[in-house]
Nucleic acid binder design. Structure first.
Lengths: 226, 226
DNA sequence: AGTGTTTAACCTAAATTAACCTTAAATCAA
DNA sequence: TTGATTTAAGGTTAATTTAGGTTAAACACT
């Protein structure tokens, strides 16, 4: 199932670009251009995460956030703020499941923050759901399944372990040795070859989404860019 | 490496339970029972995160936090407050890398907050300076890519490290030894030759933009004119 | 028999080492 | 004190080594 984003933005040109860009990464985007519409849209679509411009007509992003939080205290929210916004105001909201990005921002940055926040909230529910979002894929650790919109791929135990370790360390370097120790318990020659084999498999599974890359850092480990 | 927590708590019974509980979750805990000792312990152990009871003998948690922040403005701090504490005071500190928890609290809650704060601050560090502009080039450190308008060149780990060091010191002198120590960890003869090899490569990559020059200062180091 | 996992053989690319070349600085000769 | 000579630092290119990747076959569990 796609991750739903409520996106509140009143600049039509920027809004269009960001919306399409997010959709091309596999997100479902509900966009509103007015603060008043935000709460209604929230109730109708129950998004997984909100991306709110702070400056909105009729009701600003913070006010909207406060109202949404009353309905769902745990929902992650990303604020988009102009350079001129005072820090204090912004910082007050920068806690728990919140984050904020200064305009102008790169799509890269927005997507990383969204993924990070989704991941954080999912980690809280770890025992319950065991679902990981990776690009346009979803991994159900308890079911050993990898889904890509329509398709479902069964994962083996090793494959699932490896995906879990990589996604826990997304956008940072994991050492080869740590992976070997965590999965096989020792980093002997054969297990090392073995890890190579599984890396090849995962790269094959994730190849449909070009925003994902498992990069090798030779002599060090891997960097899972998400 | 274990995450280190500085834990300031004067109630011995509660302190013991929380300390052991955190340790059983894989944290390393340095515990102090007096506000005065907090700063010393901070300096000695350089913890990754602080958990401070607000009511402490000799120096309260807020005062201690302020002093620690002077040494490290980015360190995340969780305050533990009794029910009676006024909200206003607490809220003033609820910003940036701070969070607070009302006593009595569950261990679950404490651990979730600690993990969230650690995650947030770590993510910030990975996102901040990932794109470097150098002349007409852009370097995406997280993707290990160097782009020049149309063309994209994949960088190896060593190449990226070297570009990062040079660009961090653009228009000033970096010593050869510093580079060697930072990348290879020692400045032996062979690594020194090695550095020469990578310098040749970088000069080749940057040769399209004549405004850029990696100048050698013999016997000293390099000067990256940008 | 049919997965999942390990071993193996062969391949590719990055990092290191090596050999030889260039140049700046230091020394020396007039 | 200037230009020639020496010397050491660094540059260049290529060969070698090593880490890791790919594919397929062997093995081990149900």
């Amino acid at each position: 199932m796609k991750t739903k984003i409520l996106y509140a933005e009143d600049e039509p040109f920027l809004g269009k670009i960001v919306k399409e860009s997010l959709e091309s990464r596999g997100f479902e985007v509900i966009m509103v251009t007015d603060g008043k519409d935000g709460l209604v849209a929230y109730g109708q679509h129950k998004p997984d995460i909100c991306v709110l411009d702070v400056m909105l007509p009729n009701k600003d992003g913070f006010k909207l956030a406060t109202e949404i939080r009353q309905l769902n205290p745990a929902i992650p929210i990303v604020f988009l703020t102009a350079k001129t916004q005072t820090d204090d105001l912004v910082k007050g909201f920068q806690s728990g499941g919140n984050d904020y990005i200064r305009k102008p921002f790169s799509m890269e940055e927005l997507i990383i923050r969204i993924n990070n926040l989704l991941n954080l909230t999912q980690q809280k529910n770890t025992n319950v759901a065991n679902v990981i979002n990776i690009g346009k894929y979803e991994v159900f650790l308890n079911k050993y399944e990898l889904t890509n919109q329509n398709k479902t791929k069964k994962l083996s135990h090793r494959e699932a372990e490896l995906i879990k370790i990589l996604s826990e360390n997304r956008n940072s370097i994991v050492s080869r040795k740590d992976i070997l120790m965590q999965i096989w318990g020792d980093d002997s020659y054969f297990n090392s070859r073995n890890l190579d084999v599984y890396m090849t498999k995962l790269r094959e599974y994730f190849k449909d989404d070009p925003s994902l890359e498992i990069m090798t850092i030779k002599g060090v480990g891997y960097f899972f860019r998400v």
